[in-house]
Nucleic acid binder design. Sequence first.
DNA 1: TTCGTAGTAACTATAATGGTTACAACGGTG
DNA 2: CACCGTTGTAACCATTATAGTTACTACGAA
Lengths: 138, 138
Amino acid sequence: MKQISTRYSMAVHILSLIAITPNEVTGDFIAESVNTNPVVIRRIIGLLKKAGLVDVRPGVGGAFLLRAPEEITLLDIYRTVNLIEDNQLFGVHEDSNVLCPVGRNIEMVLQSELSEAQSAMEHRLAQTTLSQLTARFK
Amino acid sequence: MKQISTRYSMAVHILSLIAITPNEVTGDFIAESVNTNPVVIRRIIGLLKKAGLVDVRPGVGGAFLLRAPEEITLLDIYRTVNLIEDNQLFGVHEDSNVLCPVGRNIEMVLQSELSEAQSAMEHRLAQTTLSQLTARFK
DNA sequence: TTCGTAGTAACTATAATGGTTACAACGGTG
DNA sequence: CACCGTTGTAACCATTATAGTTACTACGAA
């Protein structure tokens, strides 16, 4: 299967970098730390901006947090960057045969179970803040 | 983002159908219930066979469970069908710049957090058995 | 021997991903 | 004012996973 996009881990990286740097941070600087193309960084920062997590100084550049690192959780970042259909992590096949007892019920029954599993994961993500993360860098 | 493949929900569908059907079930019959091409079904059954969840009568055909529906969990099926690199749901970008405190630590620190989140999800999947699922079909 | 089925290989169209080049817009600075 | 570094996008690309399809071989039972 395909893993969840590294866009997410890169977003955490970006926010961590902004959090621990006293002055403002340019996209090119972040790109060097992440070791990727600056455009990739800008795209992710665009999502973070739209979500109100960061802002960027126009013209001269430089990103900064709009929320305290103690108040940004891994779930916040996940939700920002991992745009997904109906916010459902699990895809469920549709158009099953309604003439069959399984086909008639599988979608609803399974979707409810899978949503619970997804919630369990998201709940765990919500337990960790950006500041807890950056505290572990040495 | 991309959702987790519907291969998983189809696998649950397939096993449910085998579980509630008294006699053995052919791939074509399952394909009609799932409403897809029989080859797609055969491919998934191949994975289920390899995992020891089902077996298929050669020649004449027909699949049957090798384990009681009470002893097959959604996690078992997930693990069978959702083959993924290192069993890590979350992809984490590699080759970050080691000269940067964030780049040097992000991979290990984040991976450990994300593994916990994944475990929380899998733990929830392990709570539901195939028999609990089929009991909800009416 | 024939028929229905399983197992596979090969091909396709579609979509997400991560990277890349290019360029316009913007705000300080000399 | 003119330049420079930066941001925001658009456009394009190669790679990969996905889900479906056709086609063929192998097998067992009637």
